[in-house]
Design a binder for these strands. Structure first.
Lengths: 224, 224
DNA sequence: CTTGACATAGAACGAGTGTTCGTATTATAA
DNA sequence: TTATAATACGAACACTCGTTCTATGTCAAG
């Protein structure tokens, strides 16, 4: 009988999950412990599945050594690598990720910023976040400095009160503002409470590109 | 012969270092591997030292299982836990850590913010950093919002151009400003380039409390 | 109905591995 | 000088552990 299905079976997935779970103990399981956890009574069947997982590139083993099994790319519980797509400045259309792009398993070759998961909103997986680096003083009304890193989620719509990145094609301008829908127009409210909002007629083109999740500022001395 | 010395010997330290080093392989070493790495030829001597490290609380072992040795508090290579001492607001003296305090091995009971090491300046160990949470709109001249988290290093002096936290007792005010020494006075320059500096006579009391290293802003919707 | 691929199982084996025991050396305290 | 504790060592042993081998079951394709 030829099984046409490829990929992970339930048994494979249970083994992967158990290896993940065991990371908190500080040492990997033995072949027998994997078998006990997953419901396989024979060490040769465990070895059979580990061989397949190795061939799929999901785990690595050092032959003959005890407990020498590890996930090829351990799930990083504590950090999310958010790709930095490039700069953001007021006078330029802003960069957004390709639709559907995710950045699981980002390598070191892409510019990225590490964000502790504990800083993200509860439930946020972080796989669709992206970052832009602010260039120039044009975002000071958003309380954002030259050099700050803005972390966003892609979006084309916003709810009232959300801080969003907006491209205004008629003004050739990218801006970060709190967004409000009013009767006949949109109100774009600066984060700086001493500054006045921009009112945009609903007939004027306005493209929401992303929602701001977080801003990170590395503070350096200013030149003297 | 009674050795009065307590604490780690060179052999202990080498074992700790080797356990750290082995973390990148994905599975701990065996007793024999530890012996080979550290220059101990007998498995019973390795066990002798592991017993002492266990008694000192530096490692944990699960008896009888292979490779069941782990550091009690693994060095976290990726994250620094920075304690949040409390709020910072303009009208209040600011909180600073007790002199000499470090926060190695912070537990979960203290409020803290996780910062990726890759975001810190090169060479920064992070053990003396502390964080304060901004309360109110009084820091907007520093481009810092209500709710932002300001991460600092304790300091009582500053170089020109550094962003520092300053307590002005005569004005009953904490402020965050770029600091410059001038001929007869100090210039405290807001981060917002459209705002004017404060000039402080050198006869007026001015206390530098810390240097700002980083600012983190979690962006939430504003109330509607 | 037969065949072959896939999956499952247990037993045996040898190597890996941790513990225990007996012995030796060194150095300090009594 | 002697006694004791700390440190060091190797051998032996028992257990853990991974691999290999053989056997069996299931099921789709031919």
């Amino acid at each position: 009988m030829v099984r046409t299905r490829r990929g992970l079976t339930e048994r494979h997935q249970k083994i992967i999950d158990y290896l993940n779970e065991r990371m908190s103990t500080g040492y990997p399981p033995s072949i027998r412990e994997i078998g006990e956890a997953v419901g396989i009574t024979s060490t040769s069947v465990v070895t059979y599945y580990l061989k397949q997982l190795t061939e799929m590139g999901l785990i690595e083993r050092d032959a003959k050594f005890s407990r020498a099994v590890r996930l090829t790319v351990p799930i990083n519980r504590e950090l999310v690598k958010v790709p930095i797509l490039g700069p953001i400045a007021a006078g330029e259309p802003m960069l957004v990720p390709a639709p559907g792009a995710t950045y699981l398993g980002i390598g070191n070759e892409m510019d990225a910023v590490d964000v502790a998961r504990s800083l993200l909103p509860s439930g946020e997986k972080g796989t669709d976040l992206f970052a832009l680096k602010v260039k120039g003083d044009s975002m000071i009304d958003a309380m954002i400095n030259d050099g700050d890193i803005v972390i966003m989620k892609p979006a084309i719509k916003a709810n009232n009160g959300e801080l969003v990145a907006i491209w205004l094609p008629n003004r050739d301008e990218t801006t970060l503002k709190y967004f409000f829908k009013e009767k006949n127009q949109y109100r774009l409210q600066p984060a700086n409470p001493t500054m006045n909002p921009i009112m945009i007629e609903k007939t004027e083109p306005l493209e929401i590109k992303g929602k701001v999740v977080m801003v990170i500022r590395n503070v350096e001395s200013v030149a003297v």
